[in-house]
Nucleic acid binder design. Structure first.
Length: 664
RNA sequence: GCGCCCGUAGCUCAGAACGGUUAGAGCACCGGCCUUGUAAGCCGGAGGUCGCCGGUUCAAGUCCGGCCGGGCGUUCCA
């Protein structure tokens, strides 16, 4: 009678397996569907191959192809197949590293004679990969010592370098071999390799799918240069990026998301919809807003102002340039000079800087006279335009510009007021963001950095726990960014998911333990003692330009009626309907709507098409019937069929509803 | 910053691999005709120092060098 091994499953049940069974056998004993979906496993939480032997008492989870870890395994295995394909097509090529990244993988190569991949090569490599997958080659794990590994990869200098790094202990290596078979103590490192064919083997921790036939839903996406080990002094390699999924459907959905993101790109829509541009004459990262973009911006800002007034903010204003001394006091010249435009010298020696931040100015507003506890919380708000000298490689449309406008608020309050203030701030921020159409959030709490931080442990501890409590009260998902806070204070940031599931960091609420001290801020309390106020930095949009870009992408250019630069376009069927069209236009304008009229100099079909391409929410057609009845023909954005004979009053009621609800 | 790719009309792109008349098209723009009931009517016109500077050549949009501007990458370390 064969001995059995008891294996624990994630649901807490225990299963007896014959001695010598591997995890694949375990999956088979559970069911055929699990076998079909299984790509790897974890043993006591450690990822392993399905071929790993089961051990007594181990908690084994079978990893399926549609789980996050399963997808990683598929992507990593697909990267190996890509390396093999490249080596088949370019004999003598060298392969470096091929990790998994978000939604895909890459592999870095050096081609013989310094050759470079072209886009056409991607198709050739894909074809070769498909034939490797058709061959259904096994992934065979082998654990080897350093010397044997060096011998195996003797013609692969990048691999040898990795092996040497492991050998000298300069690279962390998973100490316990994944098989769990033995547990050698550190001094003699063991490496693992995965072999597909006699001629192709790769150094890899694994795990991998059992064989290349388990792969196939992939696409190579682009080629880029990348330095070996990310070091610009080292050789530049050719990197091929790809994506891989558990099914054709999942792959297609991913590719569709990518296309959708491209279709929504605010730089493209910004030009198509005549919203803004980046003229070369002005300089990199500096935009001009055209009338339509300017209208959207004004509407965004107007509503923001309205809400801030209602929430007890006071509006302040500050200049774009200042003497260097202000940024010396604030400390920006110490730690932020890199990000600032160089100074201009005036009056011989006096240096002036363009402002990269608004806070020092607001500090001066606070300091302009003696302050009483009765004035707190004091909430100062400004749309303050700032300039930052972003490195040339990082500017990106409106989302990373060199000149942009912050909706910047600085709140001064007492330590006792801080918690209530933060709680109402967070409510306010989430509420207002929701009105702009973003309502799927999670929070990120950034805590004290380990090394440099101003302020006492206790201050940090109490402020961080206040932020945590405030976040928890909202009941939103909260991610802790351990040690990710700025040195001057902890912060909580709001991350929003847009219409296609991308996340953007939006608003931040940041405590500042540094600035009030540097500026010597104080207020007089009830006992006539001088006390230092607590300061909170708060941005809601962050940058008006960036938030504008996010809205363009979120709505794919189809702004809801309250934000649309043009809400209604009126099209007379023939010239002789023009007077009526103008009368309708005038009435709607009088009611406060943004309306244009398009004369009948082109066929109606053409004018309809042009109007729809600009994504006007309502296109009205007026002809004989409408003139007679006082009605309009309504083409609502997004609806296939026009609605004829609508009384003008019904349309204005609809518009009023759209605008007041801020939907549609 | 660095690497790769790209700069031709307001926009999208031909022309460039092999240097050779007045550099083309579509959209947009202007004018005329058409008088239109739901996603591209017809005719005509204007619009270019081919990103800039220099070099090679009898000859440069095309080849070479430098500069400027843009896109992507430069986060993920077997």
């Amino acid at each position: 009678m064969a001995a059995t091994i008891d294996v624990h499953l994630p649901d807490g049940s225990v299963r007896d397996m014959p001695e010598g069974s591997d995890i694949g056998d375990l999956a088979a004993s559970i069911g055929p569907r699990l076998v079909a979906a299984a790509v790897a496993a974890t043993v006591d939480g450690r990822p392993v191959d399905l071929s790993t032997k089961v051990t007594p008492g181990a908690v084994v989870t079978v990893v399926t192809s549609d789980s996050p870890l399963g997808r990683e395994v598929i992507r990593h295995s697909t990267a190996h197949v890509m390396a093999q394909a490249v080596l088949r097509l370019w004999p003598g090529a060298r392969y470096a590293i091929g990790p998994v990244i978000d939604d895909g993988f890459y592999y870095d190569f050096e081609l013989p004679g310094g050759a470079r991949f072209t886009d056409d090569d991607l198709a050739r490599i894909e074809a070769e990969m498909r034939s490797i997958m058709a061959e259904d080659q096994p992934f065979v794990r082998q654990e080897v010592g350093v010397d044997e590994a060096r011998a195996t990869f003797s013609d692969q200098p990048f691999k040898v370098e990795i092996i040497d790094a492991v050998a000298t202990g300069s690279v962390e290596v998973d100490a316990a071999p994944a098989s769990g078979a033995d547990d050698r103590q550190g001094d003699a490192p063991i490496l693992s390799t995965y072999r597909n064919t006699p001629s192709f083997v790769d150094l890899c921790l694994g795990p991998h799918v059992p064989s290349t036939g388990r792969l196939g839903h992939f696409k190579l996406t682009r080629v880029a240069g990348a330095y070996w080990r990310g070091d610009e002094r080292r050789p530049q390699l050719q990197r091929i990026y790809g994506t891989a999924w558990e099914s054709e459907q999942a792959l297609n959905e991913h590719l569709h998301r990518m296309e959708e993101a491209e279709r929504r790109d605010h730089r493209r829509l910004g030009a198509e919809l005549d919203l803004f541009s980046f003229p070369d004459e002005i300089g990199s990262g500096l935009a001009v807003f055209h009338p339509k973009g300017g209208t959207v911006r004004r509407l965004m800002e107007d509503y923001s102002r309205e809400r801030h007034v209602a929430a007890g903010y006071e509006f302040v204003g500050s200049p774009h340039i200042t003497k260097a001394g202000l940024f010396e006091t604030s400390g920006h010249l110490e730690w932020f000079a890199e990000g600032m435009y160089p100074p201009m010298k005036l009056d011989g020696t006096q240096e002036y800087y363009l402002k990269p931040m608004n806070c020092p100015f607001h500090m001066l507003v606070f300091k302009s006279r003696q302050r009483s506890y009765r004035e707190l919380p004091m909430r100062l708000f400004e749309f303050g335009t700032v300039y930052r000298y972003e490195k040339s490689g990082v500017v990106h449309g409106l989302t990373r510009a060199r000149g942009f406008t912050q909706d910047d608020a600085h709140i001064f309050c007492t330590a006792e007021q801080m918690e209530d203030e933060l709680a109402s701030l967070l409510t306010f921020v989430l509420d207002v963001l929701g009105d702009y159409g973003l309502d799927d959030f999670y929070l990120e709490l950034s805590t004290r950095p380990e090394h440099k931080a101003v302020g006492s442990e206790e201050e940090w501890e109490s402020a961080t726990s206040v932020l945590r409590r405030v976040g928890e009260q909202r009941g939103l998902e909260m991610v802790i960014d351990e040690g990710g806070g700025a040195f001057y204070g902890p912060k909580i940031s709001v991350q929003a998911r847009d219409a296609i599931g991308r996340t953007w960091q939006l608003s931040t609420l940041q405590l500042d333990f540094q600035e009030p001290g540097r500026f010597g801020l104080e207020y007089t309390d009830q006992t006539n003692a001088k006390r230092r106020p607590v300061m909170i930095h708060r941005a809601l949009f962050g940058s008006v330009e960036r938030f504008f870009a996010i809205l363009v992408e979120h709505y794919a250019g189809a702004f809801p009626a309250w934000l649309a630069p043009e809400q209604v376009r009126v099209l007379p069927v023939r010239d002789d309907h023009m007077d009526y069209a103008l009368a309708v236009t005038a009435q709607l304008r009088a009611a406060g709507y943004r309306v244009s009229t398009e004369p009948a100099s082109e066929p109606l079909g053409t004018r309809i098409r042009k109007a729809k391409l600009t994504m006007v929410p309502y296109v009205l057609v007026v002809g004989d019937d409408d003139v007679a009845e006082g009605t309009v023909g309504v083409n609502r954005r997004g609806s296939e069929r026009p609605e004829r004979g609508v009384p003008l009053a019904a349309l204005t009621a609809q518009l009023a509803d759209d605008v007041s609800t801020k939907r549609a």
